[in-house]
Design a protein around this nucleic acid. Structure first.
Length: 422
RNA sequence: GUGGCUGUAGCUCAAUCGGUUAGAGCGCCGGACUGUGGCUCCGGAGGUUGCGGGUUCGAUUCCCGUCAGCCACCCCA
């Protein structure tokens, strides 16, 4: 064993790369259908770009080092700061709302496990400059349509939506949770599903040993039942508008309002959502939301944003599980077979002509029995073999053999040269 | 970063209680098959049993360490 890729990094063999390319192609196609334009930035950024806004926790997971010029740099862990910088630099000139997408390779330094490597590709779609729920709905629709484009439906994937403003308003009105307490309480809510004991601990830390802890815990445990009541609050108007837009787009059956969705990132300010597989056995496929203050913090330009990220790792696992991998496309148009050594030059000539005409053509690189050459042709998935031997050359024809059916016929060389095989 | 489980050929797995030369199927290469693939038969390559140490006459097997993978936590790109 000559060693392997660094832990958490992938060698992509042709079969795996084909899946990734299929994912990328589909992503780009959906983005195009939604009128998004593609952008990109550097994979390596100054460390400060992330340290300033992200705080220590994310910094611990940054893939950082010092370059030869003594600069502290980081492999980008997310695209949003880069996006903010780019938009900020041209904010005056860009027509709003801005619809941009990107497929960056992102990095983190952290122990890998299933669905989470040190490196992945992530579709990012963002709408910048539009504060209303129409943009929220548009972005969610794009996320859902991406999964529909992979032939996944409401029984395969679910979109869970919440709005931090609703939860915050309720917590403030009912339990007098202040603005400074809110992030901590939301962090507690975020833990509720996985680790209620920790939720308790967090609440006690944020609120002190306060009489509100018990009632707030009760509120969290009953959130599902109270969803309807929360949606009737006036602050729920944007979320409701968002849902009705999704309904008008025919996507309502994917959507569940679930106020337990918080999202870990602190910068979300409104609607937040996550996309899960229906079996709930994988990590979130996609997560996003509204982050109206972030651009201002990074670039000084005050523009509201909403967007999501969708990684290729979990999505790839999901596609595998559902058998939605694309069949390997036939790459060759023809495999040329030279019967004897004297037939090699004519085969080379024909290969050159066909390739010149844009066709994909392969032939054996060694003189081999026809049997061997046909075996290779079949293994390559070629739809047909074109056989040239002394008899064929004399008659100015080639034998075109259909490798699926085994049927074959003689076709004039003049036609074959033009890529006509029948 | 913390804890638990697991590491035998490219893949899936065998190997008695610790026993002598670590096997099989698939895949790969070649042959039977000299102008026709898929089937069949035969042969071959491919292993420091993840790595290092310990116990033992003897370790794939037991112990320790380490690395890697998986799972959970942390965190959630």
């Amino acid at each position: 064993m000559q060693g392997q890729a660094l832990p958490g990094f992938r060698d992509s063999y042709p079969e795996e790369l084909a899946l990734r390319n299929y994912i990328f192609t589909t992503w780009r196609d959906v983005a195009r259908r939604y009128g998004f334009q593609e952008y990109d930035g550097p994979p390596l950024e100054p460390l400060e770009l992330y340290v300033e806004k992200s705080g220590e926790e994310l910094v611990q997971q940054l893939y950082t080092f010092e370059d030869r010029g003594g600069r502290k740099v980081a492999l980008r862990p997310e695209m949003t700061p880069t996006l903010a910088r780019m938009v900020g630099a041209r904010a005056q000139a860009l027509k709003k709302p801005i619809r941009w997408f990107s497929i960056p390779q992102l990095f983190r330094y952290e122990r890998q496990q299933r669905g989470r490597l040190k490196e992945h590709f992530q579709l990012n779609m963002d709408i910048i400059g539009e504060p209303g729920p129409a943009a929220d709905a548009e972005v969610m629709a794009a996320a859902l349509d991406t999964l529909r484009a992979f032939d996944l439906g409401p029984s395969d994937v679910r979109l869970r939506v919440s709005d931090r403003r609703i939860v915050a308003a309720h917590l403030a009105a009912r339990y007098q949770v202040s603005g400074t307490e809110l992030p901590g309480v939301l962090a507690g809510l975020d833990k509720w599903d996985r680790n209620p004991a920790e939720t308790d601990a967090i609440l006690r830390k944020v609120l002190g040993n306060d009489t509100r802890v018990g009632p707030i815990l009760g509120f969290m445990s009953g959130l599902r039942e109270q969803a309807d009541a929360l949606q009737r609050l006036p602050v729920a108007e944007p979320l409701n508008e968002c849902c009705s837009r999704l309904e008008a787009m025919g996507l309502r059956q994917f959507v569940e309002v679930d106020f337990r969705i918080v999202r870990g990132l602190a910068y979300y300010t409104g609607v937040v959502f996550e996309l899960f597989d229906a079996g709930n056995s994988l990590r979130a496929i996609c997560g996003g939301g509204r982050y109206d203050d972030l651009l201002k913090e990074i670039s000084g330009i005050d523009l509201p944003c909403v967007g999501f990220g969708m990684g290729d790792v979990v999505l790839g696992e999901l596609l595998r599980e559902h058998g939605k991998q694309p069949e390997a496309p036939t790459q060759l148009d023809a495999f040329l077979v030279a019967v004897g050594g004297e037939d090699v030059d004519p085969v080379l000539k024909l290969a050159s002509q066909l390739r010149g005409g844009g066709l994909a053509v392969e032939y054996a690189l060694r003189n081999q029995p026809i049997r061997k050459q046909l075996e290779l042709a079949a293994a390559r998935g070629a739809p047909r073999a074109v056989i040239i031997g002394p008899d064929e050359r004399k008659a100015k024809v080639a034998i075109v053999r259909d490798l699926k059916t085994g049927r074959q016929r003689k076709v004039s060389l003049a036609k074959v040269r033009k890529g006509i095989f029948r």
